[in-house]
Design a protein around this nucleic acid. Structure first.
Lengths: 175, 175
DNA sequence: GCTGGACCTTCCACTAGTGACATGTCATAG
DNA sequence: CTATGACATGTCACTAGTGGAAGGTCCAGC
């Protein structure tokens, strides 16, 4: 149910239309919490009905600008401070590792080295991103830096692990 | 759609009933790919209908023992070797970091240190597990060791990152 | 003037996943 | 003999997420 909170968080910065929100989901949030149009517009309706959002203004082209209400802010704050994030589950990549014994050592090694490459590729993309963005001294962007750093560390860890794991399989093979 | 592959992978080791599979999902796979009963039994039916599984035997209490077919093995192999795992997305924990600016520095720091503690706790649990399990020299358990090591590295990385991030916020605060 | 692209919303059919309930069988300990 | 707990399956109502179709408005440039 975090979609609602993502939307509340976005709208807590400034009011926006569904269209605006979609763009934010596609850019900054896409890697952490993707959402489709149908979901966003649907949730916008639900959140308004339950009083966490309100239609602050109507613009051209039927544009409706949504703003967070006091109740919405309270809910956001509650989510951020009183509830523990559920541990991330479901990793397709890791699931495959469980079944590597159904492959030959050669195939298994190929998979793991492929994983290492994918992780390295993602890391490269993040480094590009880091160079391109001029953070300036916008205090709001601290969060962006934190998440970017997380991505950097995470991809590095995955690459190292995958290379190590590939080595392990080779070693077992040799026994 | 990885549930089907998880089930194929499990059944590639040895035939099992839905009940057996559930136990495996609850124990070894719970952290990587959780599944509910309704999902497992439903998928069992679908996989049988599409010829990837077959009912190998019927036992007492209406027990049906499912076995993987040749087509099933082929599908499993294809999944493991020809398709890239979709990058893991959706981290509730990371989503919150995006919105830390809606909290006071004190609250934000508390959140990050809480994350560090949660990661450390998970790491502790994994270390316990590692000690308790006697891997013996079962070559099948290599995969188990690999995933466990992943968990160890992942939780360590998360703890370090969270502590670092908490420090960053403190530092920004001091400016 | 008209066309293409950005803007903007709504709706629908679908799959995946959750949680709970209903139902029944078999083995064994007391 | 009976109660309990492990074994075993099936079904239903629900929420979350995916993917795409459809329809309409405003603006800028040719």
């Amino acid at each position: 149910m975090s979609l609602r909170h993502a939307m509340l968080g976005l709208l807590a910065n400034r009011p926006a239309s569904g269209y605006d929100l979609m763009k934010r989901f596609e850019t900054s949030l896409s890697s952490v919490w993707p959402a489709t149009q149908s979901q966003v517009y649907g949730e916008l309706g639900k959140l308004t009905k339950s009083g966490l959002l309100e239609v602050a203004a109507e613009g051209p082209r039927g544009r409706k600008e949504y703003a967070i209400t006091e109740a919405g802010r309270a809910e956001l704050h509650h989510w951020l401070t009183e509830s523990d994030p559920p541990p991330a589950r479901r990793s397709d990549a890791l699931l495959r590792v469980f079944f590597l014994n159904h492959l030959t050592p050669l195939e298994a090694t190929a998979y793991l080295l492929g994983e290492a490459d994918r992780a390295a590729g993602q890391r490269g993309a993040l480094e590009e991103l880091e160079k391109k963005i001029d953070w300036g001294d916008d205090p709001l962007s601290v969060n962006g830096r934190l998440t970017l750093e997380y991505g950097l560390r995470f991809t590095a860890m995955r690459e190292e692990w995958a290379r190590w794991a590939a080595g392990e399989i080779g070693a077992t093979d040799g026994k």
